[in-house]
Amino acid sequence: MEKVKLKLLYSDLKPELDMIEKELEQAVDSESLLLNDASLHLLQAGGKRIRPVFVLLAGKFGNYNIDVMKQVAVPLELIHMASLVHDDVIDDSETRRGKPTVKAEWNNSVAMYTGDFILARALEYISEIDSPKLHHILSKTMIEVCRGEIIQIEDKYKLDQNLRDYLRRIKRKTALLISSSCELGALVSGTDEKTAAHLRRFGYFIGMSFQIIDDILDFTSTDEELGKPAGSDFIQGNITLPILCARKNPEVYSLLKNNLGKELTEPERLHIVKTVRDSTAIDEAKAISERYLQKALEELAYLPKGNANKTMRKIAFFIGKRKF
């Protein structure tokens, strides 16, 4: 239901997004039946397509041409998809969005090569654009995304990490790709540098809010809503903002410390989820997300008024307030 509500906010982009969806299907097409099946399995699992949406909306501030915009929107979504496949291997995840992951449906090897294949397709696709600056921004973003994934592995099971560690990690893991979607969409449509900079910062701030809300929902949503067990981040050893906030209570800290890295029974998992959910941690995490949301909205205030600005504002509010 929430995804449906989100799509209604940018329903006027449906023809262009349908075109991008077809382009994504063509992009992952392969002579290998196995690669083809695994790639389509991931693609057809769905997704919010937030990155392509932001590419298109940013392009509305310049000389909008869908044939040019899709050359940026498609590879950015492919890069995101590739990172999801690799994430599921690293986290040993069996489900994503309520469906088996590629690694669960096939195996780790197929998943890794599928991710590599999708990433290669992204690079092939964006090579159509003749812009060294655009390629520099994208390559730098990809490097930072990889660094973020490595940092996440290094930070696993470290309950005593600080807030800066967490924010640095989600910046690279999520915010930068959304930020680049806004910036590249602006640049490829020929906007001025100042407009592109405001859009880049908007993308960064909304990306931070987006990931914090995601981490909150891991504790506040049901297994059915998440399409995976609630508390999966904790089970996998990923220390997120709700955990960082909850650990300030000595009793909760002991509970988390004693169960971190342990194979939990169902009652133990549910008890941990309920403990974090019922603590002040959720409200504290929401307050931090809200600060990033407000910063994102401030960036929009510097941009020309119009439908694109209005839609970005609506999406930002939705992202910052969504329930799952």
Rank of each mutant, 00 (worst) to 15 (best):
R269T: 06
A301H: 11
T265Q: 06
N258P: 06
S279Q: 02
L300P: 02
G261E: 07
E290Y: 12
K295A: 15
A296P: 02
R291H: 13
A301W: 07
N259M: 09
P304S: 05
L264Y: 02
S279L: 01
E263F: 10
A287S: 14
A285I: 00
H271L: 14
H271D: 12
K295R: 15
V276H: 00
S289Q: 05
L303V: 09
P304K: 03
E266D: 14
V273P: 00
A281L: 07
S289N: 04
E299I: 03
Q294P: 10
N258E: 15
L303Y: 02
L297F: 09
E268G: 05
L260C: 08
T265R: 05
L260N: 07
R291F: 14
N259V: 11
S279M: 03
Q294D: 15
E263G: 09
I288R: 04
A301C: 14
L256Y: 03
A296S: 13
L303S: 06
R291Q: 15
E268C: 03
R269Q: 09
I282E: 01
E263C: 08
E284R: 04
A301Y: 09
K286V: 09
R277P: 00
E263W: 08
L303N: 02
A285T: 04
R277Y: 06
E298K: 11
D278G: 10
V273I: 12
R269K: 11
T280P: 08
A287I: 10
Y302W: 13
D283F: 12
L256M: 08
L293P: 03
A281P: 01
P267Y: 11
L255I: 05
L255P: 00
R269H: 08
N259C: 10
L264M: 07
L293I: 14
E284F: 02
T280C: 09
L270S: 10
V273L: 01
R269G: 04
R291A: 15
S279C: 04
V273A: 03
K286F: 10
E263Y: 10
K295N: 15
L255R: 01
L293W: 11
I272S: 00
K286Y: 11
N259D: 09
L303G: 04
L303R: 03
L255A: 06
E299N: 10
R269C: 07
T275P: 00
E284A: 13
D283C: 11
A287Q: 13
T265N: 03
D278Y: 11
K286T: 11
K274F: 03
I288T: 09
L293Y: 10
S289M: 04
E266P: 02
